[in-house]
């Protein structure tokens, strides 16, 4: 099977994730989009590792998963905290940090 298909899949996944982040307002969904983008990147890494025949890309993918896990913990905690204080999970309602 041609390895490029995996790259196409990765691109599609990344585009779906990015679109989700840009168009959805619910913080949880936005978060899902981010995860999707991260995993699309992971997929690309692994594909390239396979294409080049070394393990560097796989190692990076493991790192990304690790960081993503940590990020989910922190991110969800922030979302919960915001929800508790402001009774909303919409990212558009949280717009205090501006000019």
């Amino acid at each position: 099977m041609n390895a490029y298909y995996w790259l196409y899949l990765s691109s599609v996944l990344f585009a779906v994730g990015a679109t989700t982040v840009l168009v959805r307002r619910n913080a949880i969904i936005v978060f899902l989009g981010i995860e999707l983008m991260l995993n699309a990147a992971n997929l690309a890494f692994i594909t390239f590792a396979r294409l080049r025949g070394n393990l560097d890309g796989q190692v990076i993918a493991l790192f990304v998963m690790l960081v993503a896990a940590a990020e989910v913990v922190v991110g969800l905690a922030i979302i919960v905290a915001i929800f508790r204080t402001r009774r909303t999970a919409s990212v558009d309602d949280v717009n205090l940090l501006k000019y």
Binding site: L22, V23, D92, N95, Y99
Partner: peptide, 17 residues
């Protein structure tokens, strides 16, 4: 220039993208 900082997370994300 500061009008570019509206406080909406999604617009930040768009500009990053």
């Amino acid at each position: 220039l500061r009008r570019w900082q509206p406080g909406f997370v999604r617009s930040y994300a768009a500009s990053m993208l």
